[in-house]
Amino acid sequence: MSLGTRLYTLLWGVPVGTDRYGNRYFRGKRLLHNRERRWVLYNGAPEASKVPAEWHGWLHGSPVPPPTGNEPHRPWQKEHEPNLTGTSLAYRPPGHVLEGGHRAKASDDYEPWVPN
């Protein structure tokens, strides 16, 4: 986070809450064009996929109050995971260069296109 963001948050930010990943959420002290300004200070590298779903809606102007952390967890809900692209934990399908580069042969009904 830049010095400007820290200074703006110190002067104009009102703390709203923190998620379980340590990201801190703020709202502006005054309205800007009749809208409330909302923002997040990330814990670690600034990556938008680190924002859990319950906070995503609030950040994007949802009129509901900010999450409290006591929201019920439904059995069908998965645990939030940030985007892992570019890390060693990223998904790599069979045949990917970093997974050996060999994939299973295509089925017998596959014929590659050959130009005339």
Rank of each mutant, 00 (worst) to 15 (best):
Y25N: 04
H73D: 08
R6H: 03
H60E: 00
N23S: 02
R27V: 09
W12R: 14
R38D: 02
H80K: 09
P72Q: 15
Y42K: 04
P66N: 11
G13I: 01
R24N: 11
P52R: 07
R20Q: 13
R27L: 03
G28K: 01
V64N: 15
T87D: 13
E81D: 09
R38A: 06
P46W: 02
R35H: 06
T85W: 10
P82I: 04
K29F: 01
G22P: 08
L41C: 05
V40I: 05
P63V: 00
G86L: 06
R30V: 08
T5L: 14
K78A: 13
G61L: 09
Y25L: 00
L31D: 07
G57L: 12
P52F: 01
Y42T: 01
Y21D: 15
L59T: 00
L41P: 00
L59F: 00
P72R: 08
Y42G: 00
T9H: 07
L32G: 05
G28H: 10
L32K: 13
P15C: 13
E47W: 09
F26Q: 04
R74K: 10
G69D: 03
P63Q: 11
P52L: 06
V14G: 00
P63N: 14
P46Q: 10
V51F: 05
Q77I: 07
R30A: 12
A53H: 03
R74W: 13
R35K: 14
L32P: 00
R74G: 03
P63I: 04
W55K: 01
L7I: 14
W55T: 00
V51M: 07
T68R: 11
R37C: 07
E81K: 15
P82M: 15
Y8Q: 08
G28Y: 01
L41E: 07
